[in-house]
Simulated assay, not measured.
Amino acid sequence: FGTITQGTPQETIFKFTNAGNAPLIITNATSSCGCTVPNPPKDPIAPGETGELIVKFNGSGQNQVTKTITVTANTEKGKEILRIKAFVNPKDAGPSAALGPVK
Protein backbone atom coordinates (compact mmCIF):
# COMPACT_ATOMS: atom_id res chain seq x y z
CA PHE A 1 0.00 0.00 0.00
CA GLY A 2 3.02 2.29 0.15
CA THR A 3 2.93 5.02 2.80
CA ILE A 4 -0.42 5.58 4.52
CA THR A 5 -1.73 7.49 7.52
CA GLN A 6 -2.61 5.41 10.57
CA GLY A 7 -6.29 4.46 10.69
CA THR A 8 -6.83 4.98 6.96
CA PRO A 9 -8.65 1.92 5.57
CA GLN A 10 -7.03 0.33 2.52
CA GLU A 11 -8.17 -2.25 0.00
CA THR A 12 -6.42 -4.23 -2.71
CA ILE A 13 -7.46 -6.90 -5.17
CA PHE A 14 -5.30 -9.93 -5.88
CA LYS A 15 -6.18 -11.05 -9.43
CA PHE A 16 -5.28 -14.58 -10.46
CA THR A 17 -5.80 -17.08 -13.28
CA ASN A 18 -6.49 -20.77 -12.78
CA ALA A 19 -3.59 -22.34 -14.67
CA GLY A 20 -4.65 -25.86 -13.66
CA ASN A 21 -6.82 -28.38 -15.46
CA ALA A 22 -9.62 -28.54 -12.84
CA PRO A 23 -11.81 -25.92 -11.19
CA LEU A 24 -9.97 -23.95 -8.48
CA ILE A 25 -11.87 -24.06 -5.21
CA ILE A 26 -10.84 -21.71 -2.42
CA THR A 27 -12.17 -23.17 0.82
CA ASN A 28 -10.79 -20.60 3.25
CA ALA A 29 -8.75 -17.40 3.52
CA THR A 30 -7.45 -16.20 6.89
CA SER A 31 -5.23 -13.31 7.90
CA SER A 32 -2.46 -13.00 10.46
CA CYS A 33 -4.52 -10.48 12.48
CA GLY A 34 -8.01 -9.04 12.83
CA CYS A 35 -6.95 -5.81 11.13
CA THR A 36 -6.82 -7.55 7.74
CA VAL A 37 -9.93 -9.11 6.20
CA PRO A 38 -9.70 -11.31 3.08
CA ASN A 39 -12.77 -11.85 0.90
CA PRO A 40 -12.15 -14.78 -1.47
CA PRO A 41 -14.43 -15.75 -4.37
CA LYS A 42 -17.22 -18.11 -3.32
CA ASP A 43 -17.60 -19.98 -6.62
CA PRO A 44 -15.05 -22.30 -8.25
CA ILE A 45 -12.79 -20.74 -10.88
CA ALA A 46 -12.75 -22.80 -14.08
CA PRO A 47 -9.44 -23.66 -15.80
CA GLY A 48 -8.17 -20.64 -17.75
CA GLU A 49 -10.60 -18.29 -16.00
CA THR A 50 -9.62 -15.42 -13.71
CA GLY A 51 -10.72 -14.62 -10.18
CA GLU A 52 -10.24 -11.94 -7.56
CA LEU A 53 -9.51 -12.03 -3.86
CA ILE A 54 -10.21 -8.72 -2.12
CA VAL A 55 -8.19 -7.81 0.98
CA LYS A 56 -9.15 -4.98 3.34
CA PHE A 57 -6.67 -3.53 5.86
CA ASN A 58 -7.79 -1.06 8.53
CA GLY A 59 -4.51 0.89 8.55
CA SER A 60 -3.47 -0.05 12.09
CA GLY A 61 0.08 -0.25 13.37
CA GLN A 62 3.06 2.05 12.91
CA ASN A 63 6.11 2.13 10.67
CA GLN A 64 6.66 -0.88 8.38
CA VAL A 65 3.71 -3.29 8.64
CA THR A 66 3.48 -6.67 6.88
CA LYS A 67 0.42 -8.92 7.11
CA THR A 68 -0.10 -12.37 5.63
CA ILE A 69 -3.18 -14.01 4.19
CA THR A 70 -3.26 -17.81 4.07
CA VAL A 71 -5.44 -19.14 1.25
CA THR A 72 -6.57 -22.75 1.55
CA ALA A 73 -7.48 -24.23 -1.84
CA ASN A 74 -7.27 -27.35 -3.96
CA THR A 75 -3.84 -26.33 -5.26
CA GLU A 76 -0.82 -28.62 -5.37
CA LYS A 77 0.50 -27.17 -2.08
CA GLY A 78 -2.95 -26.89 -0.49
CA LYS A 79 -2.13 -23.48 0.97
CA GLU A 80 -0.86 -20.31 -0.63
CA ILE A 81 0.49 -17.24 1.20
CA LEU A 82 -0.25 -13.66 0.15
CA ARG A 83 1.42 -10.63 1.77
CA ILE A 84 0.47 -7.00 2.06
CA LYS A 85 2.85 -4.25 3.17
CA ALA A 86 2.45 -0.64 4.21
CA PHE A 87 4.46 2.04 5.94
CA VAL A 88 2.05 3.50 8.49
CA ASN A 89 2.63 7.07 9.63
CA PRO A 90 1.02 8.09 12.95
CA LYS A 91 -2.15 10.18 12.66
CA ASP A 92 -0.59 12.90 14.80
CA ALA A 93 2.80 13.33 13.19
CA GLY A 94 3.95 15.67 15.99
CA PRO A 95 7.17 14.97 17.92
CA SER A 96 5.42 13.10 20.74
CA ALA A 97 3.63 10.72 18.35
CA ALA A 98 6.88 9.06 17.32
CA LEU A 99 7.72 8.19 20.93
CA GLY A 100 4.74 5.92 21.49
CA PRO A 101 2.89 5.34 24.77
CA VAL A 102 4.55 5.83 28.14
CA LYS A 103 4.84 2.60 30.13
Rank of each mutant, 00 (worst) to 15 (best):
Ile26Pro: 03
Gln10Glu: 12
Ala86Gln: 07
Lys103Ala: 13
Asn28Cys: 02
Gln6Asp: 05
Lys85His: 14
Asn74Ser: 10
Asn18Met: 03
Gly59Asp: 07
Asn63Pro: 01
Asn63Ser: 15
Ala86Phe: 12
Lys85Trp: 08
Lys77His: 05
Leu82Lys: 03
Pro41Met: 12
Phe1Thr: 09
Glu52Pro: 04
Thr36Ser: 07
Asn58Arg: 08
Glu80Arg: 06
Pro38Asn: 05
Thr72Val: 07
Ile26Ala: 03
Thr12Met: 10
Leu82Pro: 01
Lys56Asn: 13
Ile26Arg: 10
Thr5Ile: 06
Thr68Tyr: 07
Ala73Trp: 08
Gly51Asp: 06
Pro44Met: 02
Val71Arg: 09
Asn63Val: 07
Gly100Met: 04
Gly7Ala: 02
Thr8Ala: 06
Lys67Ser: 00
Ala86His: 08
Phe57Glu: 00
Glu52Gly: 12
Gly2Asp: 12
Thr12Trp: 04
Ser96Arg: 14
Thr12Phe: 04
Ile45Pro: 04
Lys15Met: 08
Val88Arg: 08
Ala86Asp: 12
Asn58Gly: 02
Lys42Arg: 15
Ile54Thr: 15
Gln6Val: 00
Lys56His: 10
Lys56Thr: 11
Gly78Lys: 14
Leu99Thr: 11
Gly59Ile: 11
Phe16Thr: 05
Gln6Pro: 01
Ile84Pro: 03
Glu76Met: 07
Ile84Tyr: 09
Val102Gln: 12
Pro90Glu: 02
Cys33Ser: 15
Gly61Asn: 07
Asn18Gly: 00
Asp92Cys: 05
Lys67Trp: 00
Ser60His: 09
Lys56Glu: 06
Val71Ala: 04
Val65Pro: 03
Gly78Ser: 03
Thr70Val: 10
Gln6Ala: 09
Glu80Ile: 11
Ser96Pro: 03
Ile26Met: 03
Phe14Asn: 08
Ile69Gly: 07
Ile25Ser: 08
Lys79Leu: 02
Gln10Thr: 05
Lys79Arg: 13
Ala93His: 06
Ala86Val: 00
Val37Asn: 10
Ile13Tyr: 02
Cys33Thr: 14
Phe87Trp: 11
Gln6Glu: 13
Glu80Lys: 14
Ala19Asn: 05
Pro41Tyr: 10
Glu52Asn: 14
Arg83Val: 00
Pro38His: 07
Ile4Leu: 01
Ser32Thr: 07
Ile84Met: 11
Asp92Ser: 08
Pro101Gly: 05
Thr3Cys: 06
Thr5Val: 09
Thr5Ala: 09
Thr75Pro: 05
Arg83Ser: 15
